[in-house]
Amino acid sequence: MTTATLTRASSSPWRLRWRRFYRNKAALSGLIVLGLLIVFSLLAAPLESFLEIDANNADLLSRFDPPSAQHWLGNDELGRDVLVRLMYGGQVSLAVGFAATLLGAMFGVTVGLLAGYFGGRTDAVLMRLTDGVIALPLLPLLIILAAIDLTKLGFSTDFARSGAASFYRIVLIIALVDWTRIARIVRASTLSVREREFILAARVSGAGTTRILVRNVLPNVIAPIIVACSQVLGSVILFEAVLSFLGFGIVPPTPSWGNMLNNAQELVTTAPALAIYPGLLIFITVVAVNFVGDGLQDAFDPRAN
């Protein structure tokens, strides 16, 4: 009896979800791999100082050096350490992934909540906007957006040329198109939550619209939001790689997995390893994220026990 009460008392929805997630081995390994990748990227600076090298320092005398005690994965075409650049590139690629997903999610959630809750004309306008964005031919649009000259928008030349500018730019560009999937999912869930009696109950107890949206609707659509975000994250990381590969993403010398792949493309025959490392990391990351997404989907499924 006592144990029964204790386990019941601790079974908040989040604990139950975590337990279901934990049982899913593929998802759990995905999460661990993702964690390891983050740790791997964050170790860039410590490793750099430990090995006493500089990832951005070109050394034309040691181009394509094979792996050595100081350069564990060898050097690239400009004589820079491949491992440390992969680690820095991971920071950039993962940061772009998380930031663009988060930004897109914030916008998508807002649009979805408003459309689903108010319905009628609001819904029609917002959803046609969403459909419109989905219908845009992405790649040409992104290339145009990436080609916008920031100095003409009033930013200083220093900022426009900096790595930070290309980071913000790519995050914004990806967020601009990745919110649609989240908006649709949130709208659909909001439509069904809106009709539940506790929403009426909240209105009966005098809650205003904002409060109802934030306190009553949002917590009940959080599950589909998280699942959608995990799926979007995978495609965002891939997208950053595509854009950087095409030369419209992160501007060298700042490394990202995408632009390292780009640099390596003409060297594929002479130094295939330079293409394989970043390609493999992108692959592992996306697979891990997708496993986590699947696991979250199952863990949040209300029909599971």
Partner: peptide, 15 residues
């Protein structure tokens, strides 16, 4: 104030 018929559905399951 109003008390509903169904106590399960009248309470927010996430709070």
């Amino acid at each position: 104030a109003l008390v509903f018929q169904e106590p399960m559905t009248a309470l927010n399951p996430a709070m």
